[in-house]
Amino acid sequence: TFVALYDYESRTETDLSFKKGERLQIVNNTEGDWWLAHSLTTGQTGYIPSNYVAP
């Protein structure tokens, strides 16, 4: 799992909003700078900017 370093507000319907400190499970990280992730807090799935999270 990864932890959010910053808050992120989604800009498209495929993005995932999250708050700093939220735990995220990475589903697919082969898309370059945008990873498909599942929030362990909200249960939602969407794309996140990879530079906003850390292991």
Rank of each mutant, 00 (worst) to 15 (best):
T1V: 15
T1C: 14
T1Q: 12
T1K: 06
T1P: 08
T1F: 15
T1N: 11
F2G: 02
F2K: 02
F2H: 09
V3S: 04
V3E: 10
V3P: 02
V3I: 15
A4S: 05
A4Q: 01
A4V: 11
A4Y: 00
L5H: 04
L5S: 03
L5G: 03
L5K: 06
L5W: 04
Y6S: 07
Y6Q: 10
Y6L: 10
D7Y: 02
D7M: 02
D7I: 01
Y8S: 02
Y8A: 01
E9W: 08
E9F: 10
E9T: 12
E9M: 10
E9G: 04
E9K: 08
E9L: 08
S10H: 05
S10F: 03
S10N: 05
R11P: 09
R11V: 14
R11K: 14
R11T: 14
T12S: 14
T12E: 13
T12F: 14
T12H: 13
T12Q: 11
T12A: 12
T12C: 15
T12K: 13
T12V: 11
E13S: 12
E13T: 11
E13H: 10
E13N: 12
E13G: 12
E13Q: 10
T14V: 12
T14C: 15
T14N: 14
T14G: 15
D15C: 11
D15V: 08
D15Y: 09
D15H: 14
D15F: 09
L16N: 02
L16G: 03
L16W: 02
L16I: 12
L16Y: 05
L16D: 01
L16V: 06
S17L: 03
S17H: 05
S17K: 05
F18L: 07
F18M: 08
F18H: 01
K19G: 05
K19I: 07
K19V: 10
K19Y: 06
K20H: 05
K20E: 07
K20L: 05
K20S: 07
K20I: 06
K20N: 04
G21P: 00
G21V: 00
G21T: 02
G21H: 05
G21N: 06
G21W: 04
E22S: 03
E22K: 00
E22T: 05
E22R: 00
R23V: 15
R23H: 14
R23E: 13
R23M: 15
R23A: 10
R23Q: 13
R23P: 08
L24R: 00
L24E: 00
L24V: 05
L24W: 02
L24S: 00
Q25C: 15
Q25A: 11
Q25T: 12
Q25E: 12
Q25G: 05
Q25V: 15
I26A: 08
I26E: 01
I26G: 02
I26R: 06
I26L: 07
I26K: 06
I26W: 02
V27E: 07
V27Q: 09
V27H: 08
V27F: 12
V27D: 07
V27I: 15
N28I: 11
N28E: 11
N28Y: 08
N28A: 13
N28R: 09
N29I: 15
N29P: 14
N29Y: 13
N29Q: 13
T30W: 10
T30Y: 10
T30I: 11
T30V: 11
T30L: 12
T30M: 13
T30D: 13
T30E: 12
E31G: 14
E31K: 13
E31P: 08
E31F: 13
G32E: 12
G32Y: 07
G32C: 11
G32M: 11
G32Q: 12
G32L: 11
D33Y: 14
D33F: 15
D33H: 12
D33E: 13
W34D: 04
W34Y: 13
W34L: 09
W34R: 14
W35P: 02
W35V: 09
W35A: 04
L36P: 01
L36Y: 12
L36V: 08
L36C: 11
L36M: 08
L36S: 03
A37L: 02
A37R: 00
A37T: 02
A37H: 00
H38A: 09
H38W: 09
H38V: 15
H38M: 15
H38P: 00
S39R: 05
S39I: 04
S39E: 01
S39G: 02
S39L: 05
L40T: 07
L40R: 05
L40A: 07
L40N: 06
L40V: 08
L40F: 09
L40H: 07
T41N: 11
T41D: 15
T41R: 11
T41A: 13
T41G: 06
T42N: 06
T42C: 03
T42Q: 04
T42K: 03
T42F: 02
T42H: 02
T42S: 12
Q44D: 09
Q44A: 11
Q44N: 12
T45I: 12
T45L: 09
T45R: 11
T45Y: 10
T45D: 07
T45W: 12
T45M: 12
T45Q: 09
G46N: 01
G46M: 01
G46C: 02
Y47C: 11
Y47K: 06
Y47V: 05
I48L: 05
P49S: 05
P49H: 07
S50Y: 07
S50E: 04
S50I: 06
S50D: 03
S50A: 14
S50W: 06
N51C: 15
N51R: 10
N51K: 13
N51I: 09
Y52V: 07
Y52H: 12
Y52I: 08
Y52A: 15
Y52E: 03
Y52W: 08
Y52M: 15
V53H: 03
V53G: 03
V53S: 02
V53P: 03
V53D: 03
V53N: 02
A54P: 07
A54Y: 10
A54L: 08
P55R: 07
P55M: 10
P55W: 07
P55G: 07
P55K: 08
